[in-house]
Design a protein around this nucleic acid. Sequence first.
DNA 1: AAGTAGATCAACCGCCAAGGG
DNA 2: ACCCTTGGCGGTTGATCTACT
Length: 324
Amino acid sequence: MDVKGRNNNNNNVMSCEDDEMDLRRGPWTVDEDLTLMNYIATHGEGRWNTLANLAGLKRSGKSCRLRWLNYLRPDVRRGNITLEEQLLILELHARWGNRWSKIAQFLPGRTDNEIKNYWRTRVQKLAKQLKCDVNSKQFKDTMRYLWMPRLVERIQAASAATSTTTKTTVNNTTSNYINNNNGLKVTMGSTPTITMNNEFVSSQPHITQSYTLENSNTTTSSDSFENHKVSTISDLGDNNYNYYYTNVDNKNNPNSNLDYCQPSHQPSFSDCITSPSGLFSQELADFQFMEPNTPWMQNENSSDIFWNDETMLFLEQQLMNDTM
DNA sequence: AAGTAGATCAACCGCCAAGGG
DNA sequence: ACCCTTGGCGGTTGATCTACT
């Protein structure tokens, strides 16, 4: 166990330099955990430096606080980030950026550290693989118009897998997805909303269009760009139309994300990311979002899950063309 | 079986703001 | 008004785990 006497903050007003020299660092032991938990159970939280001393822990107050908040707190949730949580993280990050603690407030039991780690390991990795900046518009568009709708689709698929419903429909009037673990609810109404414990979190204009998943056809279309597939989605009526998400300035016009391109339109990659069931989605959408034990995982080909070289190359080319 | 690379995540660091003396 | 302590936050590190060769 690493016990260091480093005084990093160069603080010459410490009341007792010897105590500072004795502070432990590194991984917490079981005994330390128990000591901290027992002390807090008896005396409560707060005044972390004092707490650390009185509890007999040779740790800084900061270290105790962090250990308690990120690990020992009884309401800390362990385990994989659920799809609903992933969706919420993407949504809230799009709104607030790296305000991890603020985002964490909407994910009960999840810590800012955990969300931050999730973002860095999963989301930033994808941006890196795509060779684009995580803050670039292209990447944000990819997340907003591809991942997030796909996640909604996945959530629905999971919901359907656990119900006896044979017809799976996302429409303007039905389909609430409730995560009983954390109170998150994704409501696919006329204006889909995300709520947490009945508190409004978000409305998603880009997932407002109704479509029936089982009727979604992925076809090779004459108006596709570069001979790649575009998705033809059946709405709840008999109409079929190509389902494009267009590149708009979200700041100026946040409600006009959804558009239906005319057949003659030749969109660029960032202009035209197809529907969740269409181009790229099978290869792209969930590459790192897949969780081993989710129901759909058991039913899908592994090629659906991970990026392949061809897809990556194509994406990179499209992104490159887009920036030219 | 051993070595290596990549992924994950707990823990630390440095900065900042708030509050009290 | 100033100084000091404390707590909170985002960024970063490094130990450990896992997958691959």
